[in-house]
Structures are given as C-alpha cells and as structure tokens.
Amino acid sequence: MVKRTKKEFHDYNDFHDRPFGLKWGTAYAMDDLMKGVIANEEYALKNNAAKPLLSREEIDIVLSESFLKRKEVTLQLNIVDEFGRLVDEISGYFSGEAYQDYFVFEDQKIDWQDVRNVSIVDNSKWYKVDMFKSPKKDSLNTEAKFDPELQLEKDNEFYQPFYEEGENHESE
C-alpha cells in the first residue's frame, strides 16, 4: 500500500496561493462565463430592422394563403422591448383561428393592431433553386433576339472545320 502525502502549496517569491483547499475552482466555470458574456453582448447589440407596415387586408391575404396552402410564415410585431428595439420575429404555421380583435398563432393570442408585417417563408431547397430563373416572369423574354445584320465571321487562317462523317479522308 502506497502512502500519499498531503498536497501543500508553499508561497514562492511574491506568489501567495489561495487560502482555501480547491486551487483551480474557477477554471472550469470560465467556459460557461464566456458563453454568458457572448450571449449578453449579442443581445445588447442586436437590432431588428423594421419591415414595411402592412394593412389588415394584406395581412389577411398572407395568413389565408398560409392556412390554405400550409405554408410557414414569420410575424413581425409592432412591439418594442425595454430598450426600444422591435422584438424578435415569430415563425410558425397559422391554424386559421381568427376573431374580430385577435388571431391565434402558434398557441399565442396576437392582436391585429400589434402586427407590423407578415411574410411567407421560402423553404425551397438550395439544390432545387433555379439560379437562372428570373424572379419576375415577364422581366426577361425567353426568346432569343438576333439581329439579322450580324454575320458570323471566321478567321480562315486559324479556322479548322469539324470532322464530318461521310467525307473521304486520306487517313482511311
């Protein structure tokens, strides 16, 4: 059986150890402390940009489409926090429950007058998005327009015709 000695920390030059037994007690809490500091900094610096204010009819149209086509929407409320910033947006699905003064969204009662903006979330997969498709259908004409006065010019010095089947070639 090995006999162990008590760990003792002796002062060295101007270094004085802590008077309690746990020497590195705060070292493990540093990660949690820094996560809290970073989260507080992000909260203090965030600023939610105000979206355009929609009318009741425009809000009804978007919520109706969300309900009928089962699309996810985001709500921006016209409510500010204690620092005067707009509160974070709420995302979810509209269940269709609406009344004269309020509607229910994600099990929350929301007054019509508190809604600033409603928009449908585009959940298109990145690999299904057509990068060359115009967002406006009529903005680009799909037919190519060619000027009849343009002529194809070829430099005969460097031009080589393509191999055409059926031609007699000396290598055959």
Rank of each mutant, 00 (worst) to 15 (best):
E164W: 07
K133H: 13
V115Q: 02
I120Y: 01
T142I: 04
F132W: 13
Q160E: 01
D138R: 03
E143W: 10
V115G: 00
K154I: 13
D114Y: 00
S171C: 10
N156Q: 13
E164G: 03
E157W: 10
K145V: 12
N123F: 04
D114R: 00
V129Q: 10
V121I: 07
N123Y: 03
N123A: 06
K145L: 11
K137Y: 15
N156C: 14
Y127P: 02
E164M: 11
D155Y: 12
F158R: 15
N117R: 08
F132R: 08
P161T: 07
E167V: 15
V121R: 04
K133I: 12
E170A: 13
D130F: 01
F146Y: 10
E165Y: 13
K133D: 11
N123V: 06
F158K: 15
V121P: 00
Y163C: 02
S139N: 09
V129K: 09
L150H: 10
T142Q: 07
V121H: 06
V115S: 01
S119G: 09
T142P: 00
E170T: 11
E167N: 14
Y127M: 02
Q160L: 05
Y159P: 02
Q151M: 09
L140P: 02
V121T: 03
E143R: 05
S124T: 14
D138G: 07
Y127E: 05
Q113C: 00
V115Y: 01
V129W: 10
Q113R: 03
N123I: 01
I120E: 06
V115I: 05
R116A: 05
S139I: 12
Y159H: 11
K125R: 11
Q151S: 09
D155V: 13
N168E: 14
D147F: 06
F158Y: 15
L152H: 10
H169A: 03
Q151I: 09
W126Y: 08
V115E: 01
T142G: 02
P148E: 13
S171A: 12
K133A: 15
S171Q: 15
S124E: 11
K137S: 15
Q160C: 00
E170K: 11
K145C: 05
K128D: 15
G166K: 06
E143G: 03
N156D: 15
V129T: 07
K125D: 07
F158W: 15
D147L: 08
V121S: 03
F146H: 08
E157M: 11
D114G: 00
V121N: 00
